[in-house]
Structure formats: C-alpha cells, structure tokens
Amino acid sequence: MLIVMQKDATPQQVENVVARVRSQGLSVHLSQGAERVVIGAIGDDRSVSKDQFMLLEGVDRVLPILRPYKLASREFSDTDTQVKIGEREVGGNAVVLIAGPCSVESRGQILEIAHAVREAGAHALRGGAYKPRTSPYSFQGLGAEGLELLAEARAATGLPIVTEVLATEQVQQVSQAADVLQIGARNMQNFALLHAIGETRKPALLKRGMSATVEELLMAAEYILSHGNRQVILCERGIRTFETATRNTTDINAVPVLKSLTHLPVLLDPSHSTGLWQFVTPVARAGIAAGADGLIIEVHPHPEEALSDGSQSLKPERFAELVRQVRAVAEAVGRTVAPPLGQPLPQERDNGRRPAF
C-alpha cells in the first residue's frame, strides 16, 4: 500500500508512520516528493488494517497497490525512473544506445569496437566476459581477463561497461569491473542471483526470459527492487514462438505495454530478437517508434570470424547507419537520441544547467 502524507506533515509524523508500518512486518520505501512524502508499505498486507494508518497524524490518504509487482508498478510511482549510466540517463526523452560485441575475444577486438561505436554515437559498451551458451563446447568467454579488457576499453574511450553476470559467486568480481550488471534471459528467474544483484545497489539490466510473460519479467525486477536497488532497466530481447524465420520473435507490443505498467526504463535488443543482422536496423526503428528508452546492439568488425553471435552482429559502418536512422525516427515522434559522450545535452546548450531528463 501507499501512505500519502499531508503537505505539512512533520518529520516526526513521518517517522511515526514508518514505525507503524514496520511493526506490521512490512518493509518501508520512502519517496520524498517536491510537495509531500509518500511511504510505500511493501509485503503481504492482506491482514493489515488500512484504517490504522488513517488515524495517524499527518496521513492524507492510504492507497492500495493492486499489482503483484509492487515497487515496479506505476501505482507505486507514476514518475519515470531514470538510471544513470556514465554521462547519460536511461528513461528520459533522449534515446540511449549501448553497443559492442557479444563476447570479448581479444584486446585488439574490444578496443577496435569500443572506438568505433563511440565514434558512431554509442553511450555505453556491451561485451560478454562470461557467456552462457547452449552447448558446453561453445566459447564461454575470457572470464576475468575479459573484465580487464573491458576496463581497458572504458579507460580508452570513456564508455561505461555493460556486461553479464551468470552466478552469485561472480557478482562481487563483476561489480568491481562493470558499470551495469546484465542479467541474461536464461537467468531472469535465477532468484538467488537477483537477490545478490539487488544487494549491490548497482544499475542492473534485466533481460526478459525467452518464454517469460511481461508480468514474470516485472516480478523478476521486483526481486532486485525489494533490496532497495532502484536502478533497474528492463530489456525486451524477443521470445520463443513457433516461428523459425528468425532466432526469436520480437514482441514489439511489450515495449508500450511495459511503459504503461511500470516506471522502469525499457530497452529493446533487436540483435537477439531477430538473430539476423539484416533485420536489426528495421526492428530498432520500430522499437524507438514504440517508445523504447534505448537499444542494445551487437557490433563486430568481422562478424564472420566472431566466436559467438556473428550472424546478428552489425559491422561498425552498419551500426553508424542504424544510429542515423534511429535518430530520424526519434525526431519524427518528438524525441531525440542523446548526443555522443562529451557533448552537452540540448538543454545544457540553452541554459548551461544539467537537465533532469
């Protein structure tokens, strides 16, 4: 439930309500708005009387949260969440682009790609140091060496790093190297991993499972949010259907549906959702038109030599063309693509102040 305090509620009155919420075995999430405080009482509140809170001084009203995903729902917050990645924030009017290889393969490869995607306008670098593969005989990533190479690429380009963590025992190591922790589709319901990432309080990019419903995705996000980690980004990456023409089926519906149900930012991964490079740019355009807050794209200078997912990887020049086309679509629907790193946002040029997105 949400307990909305009166505009003139005192700090002591807020603390009294917080204490009462905790006495009922519920956890507290405090939101300090411009005009009033909202207290989220999170947990199984079916046996908790709402009237007891209305009797406390300073309380304006008590509202139920009907969705099973409490913290992720728009009932909890009707203001869009922005998650900061390096210089940019995901979740505002400006589209953010994350690009890079499926896997870190070598020092030369990751540095070449990092410089290329930054020049094309990417705002963050993706790359797998640890890779979950269907076959145990496929390339599994460089592990710790891959993390070191990603850190070197960040130092050389300024691009923040997005990389996947596969298991709870990797969380601390990957957290020290990465700016954003990615939870892959296969791990969307690895609840121990979700708990551990929630404890880090680092930005998390949560991909939708290949057979997961939208509600299941939001419930998985709830695991991370329940630990106080509000920095969660959702990612639609295609679902498994009867169709075999592409690797997965892009659920473009999921983008506006998620935007209507949750305040969390939503990305689209057209690389994994199609599995074929020639369809990545058209689906990317559709995702931005549908309202996605950004894209995560696989890029490789020599896809035919890639150790994983070469068929869905764009060459750098094709990624640069994708950026140009996505920018045109964004402008057509009243949005923008965030400027390259090092360049001020449009509002900053006008008034010299950093915008709140």
Results as ranks from 00 to 15, higher is better:
M1P: 05
Q12T: 13
V14F: 04
L30M: 02
L30H: 11
G33W: 05
G33R: 06
E35T: 15
R36T: 09
I39H: 05
S47G: 15
F53G: 01
R61E: 09
R61C: 02
I65N: 05
I65C: 06
R67I: 03
P68N: 10
Q82V: 14
V90M: 06
V90C: 07
R107M: 11
I113Y: 07
A114R: 05
A116K: 09
A120I: 05
A122W: 03
H123Y: 02
H123E: 05
A124V: 06
A124C: 09
A144Q: 11
A144K: 10
E145V: 11
E148Q: 11
L150F: 06
E152P: 02
A155C: 10
T157P: 03
T157E: 08
P160K: 12
Q172G: 05
V174G: 01
V174H: 03
S175N: 13
Q176W: 03
A178K: 07
I183L: 10
G184S: 08
A185D: 11
N187K: 01
A192Q: 15
L193W: 09
E199F: 00
T200H: 02
P203N: 13
L205V: 14
L205P: 09
L206R: 12
M210C: 08
V214R: 10
E215A: 15
L217T: 09
E222D: 15
G228L: 07
L234P: 02
C235I: 02
C235D: 09
R237P: 01
G238D: 00
T244K: 15
A245Y: 13
A245P: 01
T246P: 05
T249M: 09
T250L: 14
D251A: 05
N253D: 07
N253Q: 09
L261C: 04
T262G: 02
S271W: 04
S273A: 15
W277E: 09
P282E: 08
V283W: 06
G291F: 04
E304L: 12
E304W: 10
A306K: 00
Q312I: 05
K315E: 09
P316G: 02
P316W: 03
E317G: 00
R324Q: 11
Q325T: 06
V326Y: 07
A328I: 14
E331V: 15
R335V: 00
P339M: 00
P340R: 08
P344S: 13
L345A: 12
E348W: 07
N351E: 10
G352Y: 05
R354W: 06
